[in-house]
Computed example of a mutant assay.
Amino acid sequence: MTTQQTFARRVFLVAGIYGIAALLPQYFMEAQVGRDFPPPISHPEYFYGFIGVALAWQLAFLLIAGDVRRYRLFMLPAVVEKLTWGLATLALYAQGRLAVFVVGFGLIDLTLAAFFLYAFHSTRAERG
């Protein structure tokens, strides 16, 4: 395995594990989120839908980590997945609609987006 493949594998593995660890507990935190960040959640279908879609992406990251050459093209939508949340947190914070605490998680996603993009470009020459 090349250095580029090792980097890609590790970054997607870490992203998948981190994402599962960060998202899975939220299935049990609807009431807590409403207390900590009022108002209470009024549309739980969006809350649980977000968690479900995000968790599915964490599984995709683990799949990519398992075979970076085979799933290389999936790295591009993975970048989009990270950018959409990261950029949204910055925009919402700039509008005064989001706690700075949440922006920290958005910055982690933006960092992962950059790593994913690097992984995609660095494995380009290795395609078979």
Rank of each mutant, 00 (worst) to 15 (best):
Q5D: 02
R10C: 02
F12T: 01
G16H: 06
G16W: 02
I17M: 04
I20W: 07
I20E: 05
I20M: 11
A22E: 05
L23Y: 03
L23F: 07
L24W: 14
P25M: 07
Q26N: 12
Q26M: 15
A31W: 08
Q32C: 06
R35Y: 11
D36I: 09
P38I: 00
I41L: 08
I41C: 04
P44C: 06
E45V: 13
Y46Q: 12
Y48H: 12
Y48M: 07
G52V: 01
G52A: 14
A54H: 03
L55E: 14
A56C: 08
W57F: 15
A60I: 15
L62K: 13
V68S: 03
R69L: 15
R70D: 00
R72Y: 01
F74N: 03
L76P: 01
L76V: 05
L76D: 02
V80N: 03
W85D: 05
L87C: 04
T89Q: 06
T89F: 01
A91W: 15
Y93P: 00
Y93L: 09
A94T: 05
A94C: 02
Q95M: 14
Q95G: 10
V100D: 11
V103L: 14
G106W: 07
L107G: 06
L110T: 03
L110F: 07
A113G: 06
A114G: 09
A114Q: 03
F115N: 03
F116N: 00
A119Y: 11
A119K: 12
S122C: 09
A125V: 08
A125Q: 12
R127L: 13
G128C: 07
